[in-house]
Design a protein around this nucleic acid. Structure first.
Lengths: 246, 246
DNA sequence: CCGCCATGCGGTGTATACATTTCGGGCTCG
DNA sequence: CGAGCCCGAAATGTATACACCGCATGGCGG
């Protein structure tokens, strides 16, 4: 069989194309390009990332690419196996549940710490993001909506007084995005649950940390419940491979 | 001045010497060697890690060393600044407080999840570690005591049902070890507070997750309070540099 | 016709050569 | 005598060459 048994493994060329114009990119900018592409689901889980292709794309040698890939692997963005091409991570169901549990814990505390500490200008920015997300949702620009939705959470992570926790939350937001792309039911409007984000911004502005944390907890629980996490275990993979007709 | 203004910057040769026998070490083993050396405080904060020296020590080329160093930097074990030698991280006071706060949050949840889930054999191992720590303490083998103390926490992180949280805790334990080495008052018996570890093991065995979390919370708070975190701000550094006599 | 092995290709793993930067010692000039 | 400049040693940054590995292909033999 030429086609892969599991989810597709497209090449990275297309999803990263907008960045190819940046000649002589540093390993930091390459890291961010791939990170962003994975975050916004332009690079779906399982996408292959050949070093040579990337080095030509970004106009640097493989040394730089390898450094960027090593860092991405450390952040659980990609998986690297010996003598094999790196690919965007595909966490299993168990890890997915753990990611959600960890994020509920960390994001809750981040919100408690952040509530009431943001300047007026920062609150403006936050509400701007929420508004942009809503408008993107209403005009059906799904790519933009996902981007803004992620940015809401990343904004809160970035401005948390405890940057150690903030950094953890940043990583968990990315991994959440990956597992949503992996396990979302077809057609679900991922991560747009009513105006949770708007209400969250309101609670953050008013300094209601505990209520913000509780809201985020429900938000993430609802999100997890929307995913196809029941059947899709390793058993399914095996069954589909061994009995492609059924 | 030949002597550095801040804490010492010894070369890495001595602390890593026991590993030099392993010719042709992989980047994974090099990563672990340095990680372990930092964890047990054989490599104090600020230690310099020149790539060429390490490559000769381990008998590999700089490529491998650079990969290991990149990963260590991702885990906040070392700091890498452009065109400068890597050195073991030296978090400032603010980051230190954030590390403790993050660890209280994460370790608390890890203990809640782990309590009551360990097999008899695993509980044996845990109590063995606690006993070894105590005996090392009583015979004054400080190196061994630190090692066992770290291993108690790492053991719990490794066997947490939620491995995403477990991995976070592993990283936080290391960073805690670093800041203890940095800020401990001279002569304090770092991280040996009564029989907290023994009582912790007891609560884990009995499945008392909440009580275990509460104990760890107090344990970590007490540990943080033992550190010199009041004065030692950037102001001190500046004062010492500008007025070496006072 | 089916299955097995050899071989080529495309990928990563590692070492090394060379460019560039930093930092310090020592010379020179004011 | 002191301040500033120059330069070289030693470190990192980058590119590249080559070895090795895995996989797919296609020919060959049963």
């Amino acid at each position: 069989m030429a086609t892969a048994p599991d989810s597709g493994k497209p090449t990275a060329a297309q999803a990263l194309a907008p960045d190819s114009g940046n000649r002589k990119a540093s390993d930091q900018s390459i890291y961010e390009s791939i990170y962003e592409a994975v975050l916004t689901q332009r690079l779906p889980p399982g996408s292959r990332l050949p070093e040579v292709a990337l080095s030509e794309l970004f106009g640097v040698s493989r040394s730089i690419i390898r450094k960027a890939l090593t860092r991405l692997a450390s952040d659980h963005v990609i998986e690297q196996r010996p003598n094999q091409m790196a690919m965007v991570a595909r966490p299993d169901v168990e890890e997915t549940r753990q990611i959600f549990a960890a994020r509920r814990l960390v994001e809750g505390e981040v919100l408690r710490l952040t509530a009431g500490t943001l300047s007026k200008a920062r609150l403006q920015e936050l509400k701007r993001l929420v508004k942009d997300e809503k408008s993107a949702h209403q005009s059906g620009r799904d790519q933009d909506r996902v981007h803004c939705s992620m940015e809401v959470h990343r904004f809160l992570a970035r401005h948390c007084p405890n940057q150690v926790l903030g950094r953890m939350m940043r990583d968990l937001v990315l991994r959440t995005s990956i597992v949503i792309a992996l396990y979302k039911s077809p057609g679900m409007s991922a991560c747009f649950l009513g105006d949770d984000h708007a209400r969250l911004a309101e609670l953050i502005a008013k300094g209601e940390g505990d209520q913000a944390a509780a809201l985020a907890h429900r938000h993430l629980r609802a999100l997890e419940d929307l995913l196809d996490l029941n059947e899709a275990d390793a058993a399914i993979d095996l069954a589909r491979i061994l009995r492609p007709d059924a």
